[in-house]
Simulated assay, not measured.
Amino acid sequence: MNATELSRPHCPPIVCVLKSGGHYCGDHVKALADNVRQFNPGARVVCLSDIELRGVDVERVPLRHDLKGWFSKLEVFELDEPELLYLDLDVVVTGPIQVALGPGLFLLRDFGVGAVNSSVMYVRGNFRPILDTFLSNRDGFTAEYAVPEKWGDQDFIRDHGQITGFIQDLAPGLAASWKRDLHYQMGWIRQPPGILVFHGKPKPDELTIRHAPGKGLYVFGWRYWPKSLLKRLRRGSTT
């Protein structure tokens, strides 16, 4: 893909990460890949993983560095791709992904918790030094970025000082938080963002989520319905 093609709105390669030992498994990778292709037929989906992904139609790239948990996400910066859009396994794609950002590293502005959120990242350029820095002191950084003031891979990326901008500013409507931006909205969401982020709890597999042409996105879960209602009441609406 040349520079002119990169400047046109299009669906870049979609990348996710599955590290063994956590909440996620190959079924979650398959669900994300199927979800992406529902709205973006033929999209390339690449998964960095340390487990086999039998029966999952993605390009598997082995994880190389055995980093703990979410720090494995830093291996995204080692991929030989002109550009990529990274998605966490707990996001839901609701429509065509059309991105036309310039060179750089773009993350989400965090949803009321910290400075940045790495659930969705657009990467165009060489950011391998971020991974190299982490590998130079992996145990030290793993411990350092396990407190609220320095939380996980996203704050490590932030502190490396190479973030170009925020996705919300440069691609409005591309991604939003179900909890923070949509306030736990349940029922039909008529105009959902292109990518709905379910950070923390609940995860998408704890809810009923379905798409319908002309209606938008349906989200519901009895366990979280009281919180949804409370959020709406506090905002002065019960409709």
Rank of each mutant, 00 (worst) to 15 (best):
E52L: 11
I163T: 07
F39G: 09
D139C: 02
D50V: 03
R210W: 14
F198Y: 14
L182D: 05
F198R: 10
E149K: 11
R44Y: 02
E78C: 07
R64C: 11
I167W: 03
L131A: 09
R232P: 00
H211F: 07
G42L: 07
T142H: 15
M1R: 11
G104W: 00
S20F: 04
D57E: 14
S49L: 04
G221Y: 02
K68V: 14
G21A: 06
Q38E: 14
I209T: 10
R223Y: 15
S20I: 01
T142I: 01
N40L: 07
L170S: 05
F39C: 04
V219E: 06
D205R: 12
G236A: 08
I167N: 07
E149F: 00
K30R: 15
S177Y: 08
L67T: 01
L67Y: 03
R44L: 14
P192N: 05
K73M: 04
R234G: 11
P82M: 06
R37A: 10
K227Y: 05
H23W: 13
V45A: 14
L85C: 14
A100C: 13
W225D: 08
E81I: 03
S136K: 09
N2K: 09
D205M: 10
P202R: 08
Y122W: 12
P204Y: 07
V123A: 10
R60W: 08
P62C: 08
L84W: 12
G140Q: 07
N126W: 05
P12T: 03
K19P: 00
V123C: 12
E59G: 06
F141R: 04
A175V: 02
H211R: 08
L107Q: 01
V123R: 02
I189S: 06
G55S: 10
L217R: 03
P192Q: 02
